[in-house]
């Protein structure tokens, strides 16, 4: 059974550290070119169709900005 996932990022709290990016096993996450009010780039789903909702990104996020959703397909 395959899993499909998606993440929602709290854009104003994200500090663009990229720890989620390197911990994603399927390279879903990228960093935006534009920045938030604090001047940090923001993580986003650059490759959304690959996301399995494994929660690794949210688990390692130091600022708890990532919410993960998952469905069985």
């Amino acid at each position: 059974m395959a899993m499909k996932g998606a993440i929602v990022v709290d854009r104003e709290r994200c500090k663009g550290c990229g720890v989620c990016m390197v911990n994603c096993p399927v390279q879903v996450i990228g960093l935006t070119k534009e920045v938030n009010a604090k001047g940090y780039p923001i993580c986003y789903m650059a490759n959304p169709e690959e996301c399995t909702g494994c929660t690794n990104c949210a688990t390692v996020c130091p600022d708890s900005v990532i919410t993960v959703y998952r469905v069985k397909v």
């Binding site: 949210a58 688990t59 708890s64 990532i66 993960v68």
Partner: peptide, 8 residues
């Protein structure tokens, strides 16, 4: 209903 992980 699909949320699996979020801010504590």
């Amino acid at each position: 209903e699909n949320k699996v992980y979020g801010k504590c």
